[in-house]
Design a protein around this nucleic acid. Sequence first.
DNA 1: GCCCCTCGTCAAGATCGCGTCAAGAATGCC
DNA 2: GGCATTCTTGACGCGATCTTGACGAGGGGC
Lengths: 228, 228
Amino acid sequence: MTKVLIVDDEPQILRALRINLRARGYDVEVVPDGTSALKAAAAYHPDLIVLDLGLPDMDGVDVIRGVRGWTETPIIVLSGRAGSEDKVEALDAGADDYVTKPFGVDELLARMRAVTRRHSSVAEVTPIVRIGQFSVDIASHSVHGTDGSEVRLTPTEWGLLSLLVRNPGKLVSQRQLLREVWGPQYQSETNYLRQYMAQLRRKLEADPARPRQLLTEPGMGYRFLSQD
Amino acid sequence: MTKVLIVDDEPQILRALRINLRARGYDVEVVPDGTSALKAAAAYHPDLIVLDLGLPDMDGVDVIRGVRGWTETPIIVLSGRAGSEDKVEALDAGADDYVTKPFGVDELLARMRAVTRRHSSVAEVTPIVRIGQFSVDIASHSVHGTDGSEVRLTPTEWGLLSLLVRNPGKLVSQRQLLREVWGPQYQSETNYLRQYMAQLRRKLEADPARPRQLLTEPGMGYRFLSQD
DNA sequence: GCCCCTCGTCAAGATCGCGTCAAGAATGCC
DNA sequence: GGCATTCTTGACGCGATCTTGACGAGGGGC
């Protein structure tokens, strides 16, 4: 049974989530603030954490950092503000995905499934992933088509693709992509991302204009969706 | 032939080991202190290191750390002290096995066989590969043409080729090639790679200007592609 | 409904990395 | 000591890659 830790200070949200998730077969634990969230994460070892950024006692981003200090447990962030600044910050701190309030329970459930699937599949090395009709072999740094043809990627293209593929299902922020592929001083050169994501889609996606696996999350970042 | 580097400051032990190991068919190099051990490890690329912990110039454990910084070459530690404290420390630093002085040569030889077997069983699956019209025998260090002619490779050429061949289909980064063939301080001398890859292609590829098996991955490294 | 921001796309120029040639320095062999 | 082999180092042209700028389309906020 999947264990979920919910961190939120609004009683009605807690109540709604607890009922809905229990009905779906989740094992649910709820806490109202950051301090008890960190404690509960350590004591309860949840498989997934749903975290509201607006907590009474501490900044939600610091809760993420505290959890990430010792575990990779997936974290889905809830945010009341539609403004993207804090959400980007949360993703950079290590959150896996985010949902803006007000949200439909179905949406949250879908993201929970996506994120837990990603986490369980990471354990099994995932040396080869499929994009469209191509297989990407992370270990040997090569991409082959089903017909045996070979796709050549430049170093930058490869850096970008491998970062996304190593985090399947996770929304990776623009900042993190730029930081890890180009370096810390390039964190605002979003045009690089547009340029190279377009190149990757041209080389890998069946219909580059309508990407199915190399997805854009407007204002946030990019996401690789594994097909299965 | 297995190359062994022996690090010890006692002349009689050095002498005994050199004679015994040479008689058993090992290629033996000896050095008397930690500084020259690190140098020799980089220059000589032994298949195995036998290291006395009591050295005149530096702590033996630091020698282990120095070697482990850039290679997985197996290390067997010799120590006069039977106490387990330094033994644990040495193993933690990356030593593979441990022999307490005084020891029988037979015991050391047994441990050497065990350790090299464990280490080589990983890669020693492809003893003979074909490049163009030549067959490369990794085990016996020789290259023959289909017509029986023999191709001579220099030590450096051989080091480069064997590293690539032991990773068939995999991209080997420039840094790794430089580190394992020339040593850790050469990691940015990419012109060496250009030089020697050209020489290998001249000697082995049918059309050196259009290599089919010794491939360049621009900006990243080189790759050996086995033919079939 | 209008405006602004972000994304996808295209097209250039600048830069980098590779292959190649060549020559001096080190090393080992006779 | 002399010779041959091997290793090191430098330079150069060319092509691929990266960088940079500009423009239209679409979506969300006001």
